[in-house]
Amino acid sequence: MDTCIQKIREIAGDLLEKGEVERVIGFAEGSIPMATSPVAISTKEDAQKLCFSSTCGLNLANYASKEKGKKIAVVAKGCDSRNLVTHIVENQIDRDNLYIIGVPCPGMVDKFKIAAEMGGEITGFEEAGDTLIVSTVDDKKELNKQDYLRHNCSLCTHKNPVLFDVLVGEEVEEQQLDNAYPDVDAIEALTADGRWKHFEELTQNCIRCYACRNACPLCYCPTCFVDESGPQWVGKGQDKTDVDTFHFLRAFHCAGRCTDCGACVEACPMGINVRDFTRKLNKDAQDMFGWEAGLTIDKRPPLDAYSPDDPNDFIK
């Protein structure tokens, strides 16, 4: 990982020095253990602030598309690269203005899971290969990283960037999965009432801060439907129907576009697994259209186009 960080800094410094890009978007160390913060670097010196670790769980495509018209470089792991692809397809980023510093992804860790394991505030966090050394005020543990990967990372089949201008480090081996959606299968197996109960409980603590939406690179609409007042599509209070409407509709807006990057769950202050919604639709996109989002800049997502052989078994 250290050589990888070194290379990121070198490349970023180089690009800035030569004036090939105005800014490099990457991650910097955070102020507390296990926290990292997206940064935009504009000088060679500042490139030393860039870092990369298993806690860089947000998606930088979200930041890249906000730099319209500027030449930028982005540090991109598998997920980020797939969302950059989506943004290129959806006219949010001009490929010519984008330099992608690809990073084969080691998998991101689940902060909630580690905190639960440690039972207190984390005061120290280090990575040594696959070992995580985590401490609290009165405890210190060595954990096997593979057991504490984020759920999406544990099921990831695109750790390597799918689109990049330079690759930092060797490509990692992609895992082969027999079933990429065991969690969705489990929910699908529930009765209708069971599923409803599951989703009711899932969103019970939602505070509608919209961190999930704002962390999501797909949510770039100038005005989100929940923020519209004419018409007001959704009530703004804590009415359960309104809360769920937000989650359902947001998921539908991501249908066929979501790369399951996990930024939404990473951002949620309440620890709600909002991916339960999007993953069902990802699975449907896979089953119905053989589609995984963000793999090619040559094709639009299935719901963005109409084709006569679209599955329509639901029409009786």
Binding site: Q92, C221, T223, R300
Partner: peptide
Amino acid sequence: QEKCSQCGVCVSICPYNAPGF
């Protein structure tokens, strides 16, 4: 146009080629 996110779905999906940028 204030609300348009420029994503191009309309351009892609219209069978009659009516939307453009």
